[in-house]
């Protein structure tokens, strides 16, 4: 096959692949979403956290206001301590 045709097709192929990756990243994934930067941390103690995991969303009145950054066990109170990053706006 002609060299320029191969170049053209490879170009189209790579462009399509990158477009697919961008589609996955921008449309399917949550790029940006809740940005770090303007956040403050606070913590909350629970007797039982159930199935709560790190990076779970924190919602106030159904609106995303932050995320759970860390979950650890509090040795003094024998409770679970969740560290929350909340948006400071």
């Amino acid at each position: 096959m002609e060299r320029t045709t191969i170049d053209l097709w490879v170009g189209v192929f790579v462009a399509m692949g990158i477009a697919a990756l961008l589609f996955l990243a921008l449309k399917v994934g949550n790029i940006g979403g809740f940005e770090a930067g303007s956040v403050y941390t606070t913590h909350a103690n629970f007797d039982n956290i159930g199935g709560l995991k790190a990076k779970a969303p924190v919602k106030s009145a159904g609106v995303l206001v932050g995320r759970v950054t860390e979950i650890r066990f509090d040795n003094d109170s024998y409770q679970a301590e969740a560290i929350l990053s909340l948006s400071s706006q």
Binding site: L21, A25, K27, V28, G29, N30, I31, G33, K55
Partner: peptide, 19 residues
Amino acid sequence: FWSQMQAAVDIREDILNGV
């Protein structure tokens, strides 16, 4: 369909690992 997808799929955890 789209918003729940965007909330659940993580760039690093899911897409990068797939790559």
